[in-house]
Each structure stands twice: as C-alpha cells, then as structure tokens.
C-alpha cells in the first residue's frame, strides 16, 4: 500500500473517528502537546545557550546537559504520542498540508543535528566542561536553536494554512449521468 493509502486508512480508523467525535479528547490532547512541546523547547534552549556561552561558560556543561536532557526526552516522548493523535484525527488534511510537511522535515533536521552533536561534537565535552566552548559546539548550539525555533513557528503555521482545499480526490467519480 502506498503512503496516501496508509494515510486514508488512518483517517478511516475507529480511533480517528472516536477522537473526532469527542468534545473533550482533542482539547486535552492539544493542551498536553503544547505543554510537552514547551518543555522540550525550554530545556533545549537552556542547553543551546550554554553551548553558545550565554550567560557564561562557568557552569558545568555535562551537569546541565545531564540534568535537563532527561526532561527533554521525557517530554519529547509524550509530545510525539500526542502529536501522533493530532495527526490521526485529520490525517488526510495534514498529509496534504505543506506547513505540516515542513515541520516534519525540520524535526528530522533537529534529530540529525542532535545525533551529530551527541556522537561527534559533544564527545570531547569533558575538555571544555567548565570553559569556553569550541566553535564546533557553538555551531551545534546555534543550529539547534534555529531549527527548534523554526519547528515552533512552522507548527503554528499549520493551524492557519488548512483553509479550503477544493481539489477533488482521484477516487471520486463525478460522471454521474442520472436518468440516462
């Protein structure tokens, strides 16, 4: 089955139908998504600023990183679960929405940037734990900040670009000829 077929299957699922029909489910899911996204961004922001040397480089990077990342990952997991539910409820529309696709791309970039930092740039963090960060780490911090700010902006864009999509799905037959 191709991707649009899978998206349609999700759209037609019992879970999707239940979420759409409940007056309470989506506001609760959305509220949790916003809270956890704020936690993800807030904790990443503090780590990124430390990488950039703001407000100082005196605080142990490894300690800051260790303390905050558990909150980042915990919130991220809940954010992904609630985000999936937000997608499930109207998957066909989100799948066709450019802002939604850009957000997924931005999240992928954020993941790659984090992976490279953890595996390459951050491996010698002990050497600059309480001192000036090397330029590679500053670049990683600036990149991360830029990407995550983009994620938040694009995410809000989704809500304002769902407008009217007048396109006719391929599987809809309008050659009716009733009574002929």
């Amino acid at each position: 089955m191709d991707l649009p077929g899978i998206v349609q299957l999700i759209h037609d699922s019992a879970l999707s139908e239940w979420l759409r029909s409940s007056l309470k489910a989506m506001p609760i899911v959305e509220a949790i998504h916003v809270m956890t996204a704020a936690t993800v961004f807030g904790t990443i922001l503090v780590v990124d600023l430390r990488l950039l040397g703001w407000p100082s480089t005196q605080r142990s990077f490894s300690r800051l990183h260790g303390e905050l990342m558990r909150w980042t990952w915990g919130a991220f997991v809940i954010s992904v679960i609630t985000g999936v539910l937000l997608f499930v409820v109207n998957s066909v529309t989100y799948y066709g929405n450019t802002a939604f696709r850009l957000k997924m791309l931005a999240l992928l970039f954020a993941g790659v940037n984090m992976f490279v930092f953890e595996r390459v740039t951050g491996r010698d963090a002990a050497a600059w734990d309480k001192g000036p960060t090397p330029s590679s780490a500053r670049v990683a911090g600036a990149l991360s900040l830029t990407i995550w700010v983009s994620v938040l902006f694009i995410a809000r864009w989704i809500g304002f670009t769902k407008g009217y999509d007048f396109s006719i799905p391929d599987n809809v037959n309008l050659d009716l000829n009733f009574g002929q």
């Binding site: 759409r20 989506m26 959305e30 409820v89 109207n90 066909v92 529309t93 769902k162 009217y164 999509d165 007048f166 006719i168 799905p169 809809v172 309008l174 050659d175 009716l176 000829n177 009733f178 009574g179 002929q180």
Partner: peptide, 25 residues
C-alpha cells in the same frame, strides 16, 4: 455531490460539486 469532508477540530468542512438544475449531473 460530496467530494470530501475535512473533519477539522475547529470547523468541519464538506466539499461538494453542485448539481445542475436538471439534477442529472
């Protein structure tokens, strides 16, 4: 004739192709 329903959480939309006056197409 319904072409698509967008079950948006804020405003549900039904897209449709209006029929002609004869109601044949």
């Amino acid at each position: 004739v319904v072409t698509r329903v967008n079950p948006d959480a804020n405003h549900l939309q039904i897209f449709f192709a209006p029929m002609n006056a004869e109601r044949k197409n």
